[in-house]
Amino acid sequence: MSELIVILLSMALINNIILVRYLGLCPFLGVSRELKPSFSMGMAVTFVMLVASLATWVINHYVLIRFNIEYMYIIVFILVIASLVQVIELFIKKTNFALYSAFGIYLPLITTNCAVLGVTIINMMENYTLLASLVSALGSGLGFTLVMAVMAGIREKLDLADAPKSMRGAPVALITATLLGLAFFGFSGIV
């Protein structure tokens, strides 16, 4: 049990997927301008990460390892994630239209989000059990949502700031990320 809590905290805070592993930077710099869409994006990513970790764990253990074709994992994982996103999109559209509208265009964009593939590869390389994989996906997704939401909150204010012309946009966002990253270093002592 304590091992699972360590994985959750480590993936969410200490090895934060955006600030420490640099995964999912495109939505981080592109989407995180307002609080609400950032939060929806984070929720959509968390959900896909959970389903993708389940699917890739099962496929990795019962197909790739059984038939000795582990080297195919890159092709298999990316196809599994791409088709999962399509299936999830269709399913949510039919069953829960409110949720579908809340996720909006972020669901299809997740296919090329390196954070999702990154988490499944980390789970595979760390040889996590199924439960540990799911916990690590949950932690990564929550960490992603947290940083997206914090960044969006900061950027809503930052747009009003009188930054030098050459610093506006991406540079000032990256420097904000530096400060956030330094703040997250404070978490490294808790495990």
Partner: peptide, 17 residues
């Protein structure tokens, strides 16, 4: 990791300036 963000941010700003 934070150093990477800082260096890229400052380099971008410098090249734009």
């Amino acid at each position: 990791p934070p150093g990477g963000f800082l260096v890229l941010g400052l380099l971008l700003a410098l090249l734009r300036w």
